[in-house]
Design a protein around this nucleic acid. Sequence first.
DNA 1: TTGTAGGCGTTATCAG
DNA 2: CTGATAACGCCTACAA
Lengths: 336, 336
Amino acid sequence: MTDLLQVAKLAGVSRATAARAFSAPELVREETRNKVLAASEQLSFRPNHIARQLRTQSSRTLGVLLPSLSNPVFAEQLQAMEVASQQSGYALLIATSDYQTQREADIVENMLRQRVDGLVLTVANADSSRLLVSLRREAVPVVLVHNAPASLTLPSVCVDNRQAVRQATDRLLALGHRRIGMIAGPVVQSDRALLRYQGYCDAMANAGLNPAPMLEMPSHTRSDFQTLQPALKGSQAMTALICTNDLLAISVMGELQRAGYQVPQQISIIGFDGIDIGRLVYPSLTSVVQPLQQMGTAAIAHLLALIDEQKPEPVQPLQTALRLGESIAPPPAFLF
Amino acid sequence: MTDLLQVAKLAGVSRATAARAFSAPELVREETRNKVLAASEQLSFRPNHIARQLRTQSSRTLGVLLPSLSNPVFAEQLQAMEVASQQSGYALLIATSDYQTQREADIVENMLRQRVDGLVLTVANADSSRLLVSLRREAVPVVLVHNAPASLTLPSVCVDNRQAVRQATDRLLALGHRRIGMIAGPVVQSDRALLRYQGYCDAMANAGLNPAPMLEMPSHTRSDFQTLQPALKGSQAMTALICTNDLLAISVMGELQRAGYQVPQQISIIGFDGIDIGRLVYPSLTSVVQPLQQMGTAAIAHLLALIDEQKPEPVQPLQTALRLGESIAPPPAFLF
DNA sequence: TTGTAGGCGTTATCAG
DNA sequence: CTGATAACGCCTACAA
């Protein structure tokens, strides 16, 4: 691989000048610069970013850790982050943890060895994360997405999960529902699921109703009819179900229809996340929309500001909106 | 940031020995190694991969270029690639092109400057890509995913798109459908869409029927009812629609149901890709399943083999399977 | 088993 | 505006 020295020789200048032609063209006379560029062309020279990074002590690379890419929530957020960082001239190193604490730690350690200029993390459970604590000792700027640890202070781009679900639940209550259930994936693995459940409990309690225990599905993204069934029969059968994420909601909706239930006539469904596909299905999914693009963009913007040592404004919790779809209606036989 | 020299000093050994304690522990006496590790612990030393990469001329990083992450096809494939490369100790640098040729080129150039050890590319249109031609001159190993250029030879992990759609169409024909249409996103942007259309044409011609012109939606992933409508009315109204991807199919299915059509009783829908969510919706989507995980894994495996200069077996086209869902049925009023 | 020393390809400093 | 030179942090012959 040809290097700057070769280019310099061919162009008849010093290494320093050749280097400047690339990294600070305005410091070089146009004529000289052209000679260098011509030479570099001829040798098909390509600047070595690794060497540059070593020398400048800056990698212009960001590390992104996500639980998974199979859930469109993370994929859509990553999409936005990628665009934002590409625009700012930063590359993205990504890795997935599958919600495993050990992998979270290993991945971050590797990214630090790679000397990323900043980290965007979404961890399984922020409050029980030793990783986040230890990161506070590091110099590297960190932004959390989706996690809002109660105990420690790290900039965090997220929505008010609890409040959002409370509002969604209120909506169902206003429609006349009384027997409302909540469905999640493996709860211990996600701090978000818990917050969302609390929001549901808030609303139920406020309406003088007993919150039902969480229905816990074996998978984050797929419902299991066995687990679902008890909630559907007897005099206490649910008339509405809130799911902790959209994939789960779409799945529940599908299973219900397959089992002969009418959605929303017999049972209403609400999801959380507002992924695009929720609008495509029929009935379209009513969902608590997180501004995923905005979250991705905000995370990168904040991180870059931290890197530039501008003390950025603290991140504000972003607004959710309840997107009304075709999946909710008043409960059956409900008359005002 | 502390470096090896500091560690060496504290441990009372030379720089070389300290280095070896990390990169080749077996060459160092256990006692010495422990001293080094203790010192490194105490100084919270972290090996600098940038320096190592410069020295060893190997980044242990792979570059991945995808059109977008908003489509679960790419996200699911990336998920598999990430797991595979993490297992092999490679990091992943990713970027999205939004199907823009210029961005494809810029991204690859940057990755080469970053001295990635290999590239996994999915380009908009492989046959019209100057990028791929110019890459042939580079030393860097490249694997294509989803693209199978007709003209030039690059290892490519993909399925036989044409044949797969032909079989899907045959299935509809066997059910008794005669008026079958095909729906795509912006065709010029995707070589896959075209191949899939050809497969449809093959099947129609083989059955002695006239293929209908492609219905081209403005978006890759969302149907537009205006565009769809003409295909639904008149004596030539379609009884079945094949979509070039699942997101489009789910969207079409939703719009149809919303407009009062019964799927599949009045109209059958088939998608392409086999993304997970297709199984969750109701009716579940009949789809040509690409083995996305397998494709991701195979791409990484092949690339790593190329990097190790093992001449790997040429990649075989992977098998698709028509996953039968609830979205197809015989055409209305069709009697055997 | 350990030490010495040179260089990977840049950029930054300081002179000229 | 340009050139010489010394790092950046690590690895790896080669020598001891």
